[in-house]
Amino acid sequence: MRILGIDPGTAILGYGIIDSVGNQLKPVDYGCIRTEANTDMPSRLGILYEDLTSLIETYKPDAMAVEELFFNRNVTTAITVGQARGVVLLAGVQAKMSVFEYTPLQVKQAICGYGRADKQQVQEMVKMFLNLKVIPKPDDAADALAVSICHAHCAPILSKLSGK
């Protein structure tokens, strides 16, 4: 199964694509889609959609795993990230992919076995699971890979629960 993991954002949207075959996880591609701060929001969302759609067409993932919004005190940030998430979910649904959402707590639990793991612990585990020589950079790409690994771990259970 090919999984596209997404760490949503409007300035930087992290993506990580892995192949999950049996117990093996293999990195396919990872990186970020960036938009310029001085660009209006509709244009930024359009860039995210177009670039994400292009990634989907290129790599043809079977599933998309998206990190859910972690709401903090900055309401403006939460709203803009929510808009980016909407674009991401739309791109996945329009590509007829199965789309799954995971909270940061669920991702950390799946990756580290501890829902309150810090960023460094998660990044080290991503490096280990994917047999990489270095921690993926930037952080947004490493976070997206963590979301895709989380789904790889959860998919067999979700499949059994849904009867598929």
Results as ranks from 00 to 15, higher is better:
residue 89 L to D: 05
residue 89 L to Q: 07
residue 89 L to E: 01
residue 90 L to S: 07
residue 91 A to F: 14
residue 91 A to I: 13
residue 91 A to L: 14
residue 93 V to E: 12
residue 93 V to T: 13
residue 93 V to D: 08
residue 93 V to P: 01
residue 93 V to Y: 12
residue 93 V to G: 01
residue 94 Q to E: 10
residue 94 Q to C: 00
residue 95 A to R: 06
residue 95 A to Y: 13
residue 95 A to G: 10
residue 95 A to I: 12
residue 95 A to T: 02
residue 95 A to D: 07
residue 96 K to V: 08
residue 97 M to V: 11
residue 97 M to L: 15
residue 98 S to E: 12
residue 98 S to T: 05
residue 98 S to L: 08
residue 99 V to E: 05
residue 99 V to R: 02
residue 99 V to G: 03
residue 100 F to Q: 15
residue 100 F to I: 08
residue 100 F to P: 07
residue 100 F to G: 04
residue 101 E to S: 12
residue 101 E to F: 01
residue 102 Y to G: 05
residue 102 Y to E: 03
residue 102 Y to F: 10
residue 103 T to A: 09
residue 103 T to R: 02
residue 103 T to D: 09
residue 104 P to M: 14
residue 104 P to F: 10
residue 105 L to A: 14
residue 105 L to Q: 11
residue 105 L to P: 00
residue 106 Q to P: 11
residue 106 Q to M: 15
residue 106 Q to F: 09
residue 107 V to D: 05
residue 107 V to K: 01
residue 108 K to R: 01
residue 108 K to G: 02
residue 109 Q to F: 01
residue 109 Q to Y: 02
residue 109 Q to I: 03
residue 110 A to K: 03
residue 111 I to W: 04
residue 112 C to G: 07
residue 112 C to V: 03
residue 112 C to A: 14
residue 112 C to R: 04
residue 113 G to E: 00
residue 113 G to Q: 03
residue 113 G to H: 00
residue 114 Y to S: 00
residue 114 Y to C: 01
residue 114 Y to Q: 01
residue 114 Y to R: 02
residue 114 Y to V: 00
residue 115 G to C: 03
residue 117 A to M: 14
residue 117 A to S: 15
residue 117 A to K: 10
residue 117 A to R: 11
residue 118 D to K: 07
residue 118 D to N: 12
residue 119 K to V: 09
residue 119 K to S: 06
residue 119 K to H: 06
residue 119 K to G: 02
residue 120 Q to M: 15
residue 121 Q to E: 08
residue 121 Q to V: 02
residue 121 Q to I: 06
residue 121 Q to P: 12
residue 123 Q to F: 07
residue 123 Q to N: 07
residue 123 Q to Y: 09
residue 123 Q to V: 03
residue 123 Q to K: 06
residue 124 E to K: 10
residue 125 M to F: 00
residue 125 M to G: 02
residue 126 V to D: 11
residue 126 V to W: 10
residue 126 V to N: 11
residue 126 V to Q: 13
residue 127 K to E: 08
residue 127 K to H: 14
residue 128 M to E: 07
residue 128 M to V: 06
residue 128 M to N: 08
residue 129 F to C: 14
residue 129 F to R: 15
residue 129 F to V: 13
residue 129 F to E: 15
residue 130 L to K: 14
residue 130 L to D: 08
residue 130 L to V: 13
residue 131 N to P: 04
residue 131 N to R: 10
residue 131 N to I: 01
residue 132 L to P: 06
